[in-house]
Amino acid sequence: MLSALLVMTGIAIVLGAALGYAAIRFKVEGDPLVEKIDAILPQTQCGQCGYPGCKPYAEAIAQGAAEINQCPPGGEEGIRKLADLLGREFKPLSEEHGVEKPKAVAVIDEQTCIGCTLCIQACPVDAIVGAAKQMHTVIDKLCTGCELCVAPCPVDCITMTPIPETVENWKWKYPVVELRRVA
């Protein structure tokens, strides 16, 4: 009886120590879930979700403070991926946060630009170059299409232009013709 108790206690102590050591030795810095959610989000950094950037939104989702359907640039596919990852129910995109639009880039009308630098300060990814009283321009390859530069412009010289389809980004069509129930 006593020996059995001792053996069990001994095992408990050894395993407990092993677990305790492992918890310290293999401690994960940061929240891995946040990273996973952040990887799904489109990194537009537009703030349409109500958070200042994709990472804060990912943190809010991980804490359960935000819904998964607040990201218009991610669209329906993004919501599905988040639902899969988090085991939550799919929800259609929340209307108050915006609508899904085709991908676009900001274009500055360089004739109208007065060089006020307001758009440069608004750009979350530093994709606008220019200096005070000098013409500004958008580096289209870096633009995420967040539209944050459109509102601050005092002369309304920034327009959002959808990305045209070229031979490089053209995609083969899905060969399945979907049959829809008519009645």
Partner: peptide, 9 residues
Amino acid sequence: ASDQARERF
């Protein structure tokens, strides 16, 4: 593109 945007942000 999104990795680049994240890094720049």
